[in-house]
Write a protein that binds this DNA or RNA. Structure first.
Lengths: 178, 178
DNA sequence: CGAGGTGGTTCCGTTTCGGAACCACCTGCC
DNA sequence: GGCAGGTGGTTCCGAAACGGAACCACCTCG
């Protein structure tokens, strides 16, 4: 199947990946979060080719992750994160947590600290997986996968489509890979 | 620059992306977390081509994210998540949180619930960004970027290398893109 | 006017990818 | 033994994505 068809899957993991899941997009967003806003600055920081950068910026603007606008009186454009784009920060921080743990043998290279933390040596941003009911911290082994409130509507929508192939649509198992 | 050189950056975001940042790898891992372990099952679930699946599985095994082994007496191999691989779960859950919020107009398709939550209608897994010092929840706007304990060692290692290009190495700004 | 900066586009050789065919191996069955 | 059907793995080729350089239009400033 074509990669873009992953967007039709009733799955909130694969759908973002159709937009974000390539070599450069998350690297690009990292630099947006670092405060870079202009085309040339982003090109220099990421080192990606200009044509590819243009593609990615256009796609992110199209998905309202970035917003393009020209400051009044300025001779340049700026690409700024929208609220939707800002909401991607936990994804980058989750990657960073893992990278710090498993891919930083010389020690954590960059600290992401809590600006308003009043204690000496401000605390660091950490990503936690918690149950929204009992507030306990969780791991993958404790997660069960089940149908959500929007699944039926998704399946109905898929059934109403040209039915491009007879792929299975079952919700497979739970998250315990042990 | 070549994409693989991103692994040399003193950055715990880009380094994982060199392994995970392509079209299929995170989709593949999602199905591993769903309990799939065998080549053909993963090929059917992801719909990726067999040659690409082989490439990705080999890379993940090489990085000790998956472990390959044959159950005794079985005629097939299994790819299982290692602890290092299981630690990637928050990355997928962060993507899912965002996908549920911004790319699920018909409602959340899949619920990831807390198996051991004793309440009726078990709670769901949520990713939170918190300060590890004051334990307050945080957003991207409240994060400051600064040098970490491993940065000097990283820079020294880079300086000792053939110095392939005169790229800048500064730590650019903080995370407030407002 | 020309110099130098901005973001954007076009082009082409290279790399990666998708998909089908093919392979080696093992098991079970008659 | 011989064959069918399953496993994971590999090879091949046309298509798509990518990198990098050249080029463009526009603007500002001296």
């Amino acid at each position: 199947m074509r990669y873009e068809d992953l967007a039709d899957e009733p799955c909130s993991i694969t759908r973002p990946l159709v937009v974000l899941g390539d070599r450069w997009t998350l690297v690009l967003l990292k630099h947006c979060f670092a405060g870079l806003r202009r085309f040339n600055a982003l090109q220099a920081a990421t080192t990606m080719s200009r044509s590819r950068l243009q593609d990615r910026l256009d796609r992110l603007v199209e998905h309202e992750i970035l917003r393009r606008h020209r400051p009044e009186g300025a001779a340049w454009d700026e690409y700024r994160l929208t609220e939707k784009g800002m909401a991607l920060y936990p994804v980058l921080m989750a990657l960073r947590d893992w990278g710090d743990t498993y891919m930083a043998p010389l020690g954590q290279p960059i600290r992401y600290t809590h600006r308003t933390c009043t204690h000496a040596g401000p605390g660091e941003a950490r990503v936690q997986l918690r149950c929204d009911c009992c507030d306990e911290s969780m791991t993958a082994r404790e997660v069960t996968v089940e149908a959500g409130p929007g699944l039926d509507a998704e399946l109905a929508r898929l059934a109403g489509e040209p039915a491009q192939s007879g792929r299975s649509r079952q919700v497979s198992g739970d998250a315990d890979p042990g």
